[in-house]
Design a binder for these strands. Structure first.
Length: 112
DNA sequence: GTTGTGACTTTTT
DNA sequence: GAAAAAGCCACAA
């Protein structure tokens, strides 16, 4: 299996595998890539990575948007999440992000 | 091989 | 409770 890929490559595949209406935290993505403390690296990869991936579904530990440097501002990011079916509150936090938190192994379980 | 950086996380003041 | 600092990992020069 392809496990020799770089950390960055894993992030791409993982983020690209996030289904619509689901969100993941940087720490979780990093943990699934082999390092639970490499959340910063995930963010850096995201900024330099392909904009084709749904980075909008990637949020910080607070369940809020962190890409204030992308998407034309956090406001644009909030709209992007809503377009994906993710509800966002005035604090730019994903509504029920703990429930919408997606895991690659669980493959979506049941989300109401 | 060393230094610097970063869309984070956690702990301490 | 909020703000500041340190810590951690991977990639680029």
């Amino acid at each position: 299996m392809n496990v020799d890929k770089s950390f960055r490559d894993k992030v791409y595949a993982l983020v690209a595998s996030i289904p619509e209406g689901r969100v993941m935290t940087y720490g979780d993505v990093a943990a699934y890539c082999g390092s639970p403390f490499a959340a910063r690296q995930v963010g850096q990869v995201a900024h330099f990575g392909p904009s084709e991936l749904p980075w909008q579904r990637v949020v910080n530990r607070n369940g809020g948007l962190a890409s204030a440097y992308s998407f034309g501002g956090i406001e644009g990011h909030k709209a992007a999440l809503q377009a994906d079916g993710v509800a966002v509150d005035e604090a730019f936090r994903v509504v029920g992000f703990e429930v919408k938190r997606w895991h690659p192994n669980e493959t979506q379980t049941s989300l109401l």
